[in-house]
Amino acid sequence: MLDETEEGHVTEDGRQIGGVLMEMRNITLRFGGVVAIKDISFDIRKGEIRAIIGPNGAGKSSMLNVISGFYHPQEGEIWFKGARRKPMKPYQVARQGIARTFQNIALFEGMSVIDNIMTGRLTHMRSGLFSQALWWGPAEREELENREVVERIIDFLEIQHIRKTPVARLPYGLKKRVELARALAAEPELLLLDEPMAGMNVEEKEDMSRFILDVNDEFGTTIALIEHDMGVVMDLSDRVVVMDYGRKIGDGPPEEIRNNQDVIDAYLGVAHD
């Protein structure tokens, strides 16, 4: 069971869960008169798989967009690695070590798979415009070093055969995998996955689940994911946040969430008597 100490704990399957990596404190997000997120607090611990679930329109994606810097909440604080985060632009968030994928695949369609994944290394590349214009020396060395990292990720996700294929020609399931590869290439501390299994068949879902577990296990990456498939969520995640109409109605390990009356009501509806 969950141990609430700062030092963290070890899960049943032997993974190390550390202290708090990211903490959302009393986040409220409004669009004009619409309240998308209302006074939500939760934390994400180092090394865990954290799921955010809820019915359509509950504010899950908005929450992810707040974390990645697309939306700026009107109230509340975001704490990352023990420091309060100032309002920042998405590219600054990326440089802090947060990568993500999108619900609707957001790959660069005009580029090959390898180039797409190489863009993920951007935050690790330093050489300036002039040294790149010359190519010889530092720029080439840096390019080749990063290429090696990218090739390891390609091996890991088993997409060697499509390395040079333009992304536009790939089927949906593979595109999802390439997008995951691009996010992984950044070697993020926190990986946000927005519905990684939307629109997949059972086989593809199994593959993707395996990759998510492997990423968490091998690289120790902390993962926060939004997913609709309850079976997947309950199997994968260490802790689950449940949202409904912008409010938090549940937070805890899967078995606890499964028996939470508010959650059952939100998903199945309540009889009015």
Binding site: Y91, R100, L107, T119
Partner: peptide, 15 residues
Amino acid sequence: MAIRDMDIAAEIIGV
């Protein structure tokens, strides 16, 4: 090219 193909995704990877 990232900016050309999808500027939002480009920003999210740190461009």
